[in-house]
Design a protein around this nucleic acid. Structure first.
Lengths: 216, 216
DNA sequence: TAGATTGTTAATCGATTAACAATC
DNA sequence: TAGATTGTTAATCGATTAACAATC
């Protein structure tokens, strides 16, 4: 198979979206080219780091010139697979689920949200952001009949673990986890990619910095 | 002032909430003591790293015994200031704002949510999770009359920058930013602590890992 | 061509891991 | 006491920064 396995570090991966956003911002501002040192000023990373980051993925700058902003944007989009159109579902249409369905543009980030699931009879059959809500009872069947790449997990903490298991056992290979329940560690999670959004972890970090600020 | 400035690295700080959650889990499971090597197995960090992390904040283990789970929990809570009761407000009562007001327990993480603000007349005067929604027109006055430590920013992208500025200019010293708008970089942001929750950045990272998985 | 800026190699810095004396 | 496990010092590893030859 000759896998390249160049193994990009997590730190680099977390910076990629920043480069993409900056490129978008520059395009909107009518900027056509930018050097690593200008990017450095605007992003707060060093110019060296920026060039190192980019060079992980090829050579898309030009000596003496810098980076073409549109080219940079295209490279970032390509690296992050923003054109993949991964097939995604959403499980749990609470406030978070609704926020994502109504206001979040999945397609912009390479995902195609095709269906949502919830236990609440009042929601079943409704559509939000053009996506239909089905009964949770239909989830398993849906997973078996469709090739679901990614599932957004936005159910209650109580059902998170059980629902997560169903997803992982039935071909979903990535979970965007909005519950505070740890899914990795479950044996089923071995070959599933889990990305957590943990409000409480984030808030605790904020609290730490606030405390540090005061106490010195 | 003789500030200690021991400067704990961000990596360590992001692990602290994991230790807290694990301690809670162990308490719930009736476990009284745990060694760094057992923690290592359960958390996926090395035992060395765990001991290093803890030793940044003192000595709360016992040779030959390990860590008392309740003591560990208490230490983590203390380190992250979970008893501070920071005064917090929430700006923007959309789906995200509602999700936080209805379901998120601020007090558990050291914050006291006292008021919410929104432009929508239908929401003004209502209460969610015991917190009253006031008109955005009252925000400035509220900030001047009250000592607000932290503000949750959950407004639309369009108003994020302007509202952020108002917050930063009027004594708020930390912002929990749910908009995708970059607040740091604004000159007002200099001495304000900003913690971002960026759905799109998180989803792009997930997309990257999915793409990496397939392509090798 | 001369000036600018890349991509990359080498140097530095910081974080993780290993090892072990101290001690419960 | 003997066994276990910490807290900490030293070694290793990886990521960031600096430097510079290549080249547009």
């Amino acid at each position: 198979m000759n896998m390249k396995k160049s193994k990009i570090s997590n730190n680099v991966i977390r910076r990629l979206p920043k480069y993409l956003h900056k490129a978008d911002e520059l395009i909107a501002a009518g900027v056509n080219r930018i050097s690593s040192s200008e990017l450095s000023e605007q992003l707060g990373f060093t110019a060296s780091q920026i060039r190192q980051d980019f060079s992980n993925f090829g050579e898309f700058g030009q000596q003496g010139y810098g980076y073409d902003v549109r080219e940079l944007r295209a490279q970032m989009a390509q690296i992050m697979g923003l054109d993949r159109g991964y097939n995604a579902i959403l499980v749990g249409v609470g406030h978070i689920g609704r926020a994502l369905m109504d206001n979040f543009c999945f397609s912009e980030w390479g995902f195609n949200l095709t269906r949502a699931f919830d236990v609440n009879p009042e929601l079943i059959g409704k559509e939000f952001g053009g996506v239909k809500v089905s009964s949770m009872d239909e989830l398993l069947d849906f997973l078996k009949k469709n090739d679901v790449d990614m599932a957004v997990l936005a159910v209650t903490a109580e059902s998170a673990s059980a629902v997560g298991k169903v997803l992982m056992k039935n071909g979903v290979n990535a979970i965007w986890n909005f519950t505070n329940v740890e899914l990795t560690g479950q044996q089923e999670a071995d070959d599933v990619i889990v990305e957590n959004i943990s409000f409480s972890d984030s808030l605790m970090a904020l609290g730490y910095y606030m405390t540090e600020d005061r106490d010195g």
